[in-house]
Simulated scan of single mutants.
Amino acid sequence: MKRLALLCLLLPMLAVPAHALRCGTRVVTDGDRDFAVRERCGEPFYVDQFTSVSVRGADGPLETQIEDVYDVWYYNFGPRRLMVRLLFLNGRLQREETLGYGVTTIGDSCNLDALPAGTSAGEIIAYCGEPAARRNQRRANVRRDGLGNERYTPVRVEEWTYDFGDKRLLRVLTLQNGRLQDISAEGR
Rank of each mutant, 00 (worst) to 15 (best):
P116V: 00
S120Q: 02
F35C: 02
R81I: 07
T51I: 04
R188E: 09
R135W: 10
A15Y: 13
V16G: 07
L4Q: 12
A126E: 03
L11A: 14
V28A: 13
L82F: 13
R188A: 10
E130W: 01
L99S: 03
R151E: 15
G91E: 12
G148R: 02
V103D: 09
T25M: 06
T161G: 04
A140Q: 13
T64G: 02
G165W: 11
G146R: 11
C110N: 05
F77L: 13
E39S: 12
R135V: 11
S120E: 01
R85A: 01
G118E: 06
L93T: 05
V103S: 06
E39D: 14
T64Q: 15
K2D: 13
P12H: 01
E123R: 00
F35Q: 08
V157F: 08
N76I: 07
V27Y: 07
M13L: 15
G187F: 08
R38H: 11
V69N: 11
T29D: 11
M1G: 14
L170K: 15
K167W: 13
G60E: 09
A15W: 13
L10I: 12
I183P: 02
L4W: 12
F45A: 05
R171A: 00
V172E: 13
D182T: 07
A132S: 15
R80D: 14
E97F: 10
A140W: 06
Y75N: 08
C128E: 04
L173R: 02
M13I: 09
